[in-house]
Design a protein around this nucleic acid. Structure first.
Lengths: 218, 218
DNA sequence: CATAAAATACGGGAATACCCCTATTGTAGC
DNA sequence: GCTACAATAGGGGTATTCCCGTATTTTATG
């Protein structure tokens, strides 16, 4: 746990410079590298023997994202620890990250220096780590228990498909689709599918309570 | 346009450190101060003669926000220029900022150093400034032209009220409510009210295109 | 003050959603 | 291996939404 080489993969110049500054102050950290895109990331990995990567999920381009980058890195350099930074934690992202991409930590961007150092300590000791902000959100999601099928139905519903169309797409009976939507409405304690989508999206988009309330129209 | 004193009011330590680093590199900037809350902000304003403030809108606490801070600063020190930083531009925020809070610029956080410097140049020359990313979003919103009544209807619809209930609440006929929803669906080019709400919320919550598409359920 | 746009209101019919119910099959946890 | 629960399927009735009209009043904007 010393002389660590850290790489920050993040397209916001300002955020990455700030993170670099904070990381450089830590005794265990030898050097901090920055990459603002996928190509730079791969170049740095060839040139330097990186120990830990801080990885953002969202990039300006749609050619790649944090998931793709994480998978590629773990494929090429399985020893490198990956700490994913996020703005809004989601359980489906959490699961994709740990099961599919094999990352080592999932951290809220809003957190401060100590949390970043603690995360590094954890992953260097081969521990998986999820910060407390994110754990909280994941617990709520777990509690809601949206099944795989229900998840598929709600996504198609959001795309504007009617029950019959959803049924055709999933190759099940319209009555089954109706049942799934009905069950979801009970879980979310709502009266109709419009309210279901509202609640679901508020929740997906980071639980910003009643944003709609402050809207004033022209 | 020299020896400027700049204050960054922003609760994310990492982002503000990054911004400070970038601003300090500019020849015109004398000193960069940081404040992570409202109290520190007021203290610094008393101690130093600040020229330009970079202000974030969202803070951890709900005691105050960027709007409140901006109003107070302009009330106390009307000469200080305020540049608001945002993650997701919205027209109702834009209007509140410029009409009510009298701020000087509205900037996307994702932008780089040159854009920050350009914004400073503009406000120092008494010009109001909105960056191109934000302008684009505002144009789309203007183009959509959601009327006051339509706005009220869509908010109640999101709350799970059916057309009859919305009509009662707004003291208009259910048929009129139906018409408003119908018109909104045409504006948003969607097939039903569920899809209307989905598109509307995606758009309110920052235009993250097809977030739903990447979701995979357990 | 004129003209456009928004808000108001209503009708009718087809499609869809909602809500109660039962019932079978597969599968994950104890 | 038992037990829950998810996923499947369906009946039948009522409520609501959606889509096509038309038409009057109110409110902005030039």
């Amino acid at each position: 746990m010393k002389n660590l080489k850290v790489l920050i993969v993040e397209d916001s110049v300002i955020f990455s410079e700030g993170l670099r500054l904070i990381l450089e102050q830590h005794a265990s950290i030898n050097k901090v590298y920055l990459a603002h895109n996928f190509n730079d990331t791969l170049d740095i990995l060839i040139a330097a023997s990186i120990d830990v990567i801080f990885l953002d999920l969202n990039f300006e381009t749609s050619d790649y994202d944090g998931f793709i980058i994480a998978k590629k890195i773990k494929e090429l350099y399985s020893d490198i620890k990956i700490i994913v930074l996020t703005q809004h934690a989601r359980i489906y992202i959490y699961e994709k990250l740990f099961n599919e991409c094999k990352v080592d930590a999932y951290l809220d961007k809003q957190l401060g220096a100590e949390d970043m150092f603690f995360a590094i300590e954890q992953v260097i000791n081969n521990e998986k780590y999820v910060d407390r902000n994110i754990s909280e959100i994941l617990e709520i999601e777990q509690w809601l228990k949206i099944s795989k099928r229900e998840g598929e139905v709600i996504l198609l519903l959001m795309d504007g498909l009617v029950q019959k169309e959803i049924a055709f797409k999933l190759n099940i009976s319209p009555k089954t689709v109706e049942k799934h939507i009905f069950n979801l409405m009970k879980k979310f304690k709502v009266k109709n599918s419009v309210e279901l989508i509202t609640k679901y999206m508020r929740y997906i988009n980071g639980n910003r309570e009643n944003l709609a309330g402050e809207i004033s129209f022209p």
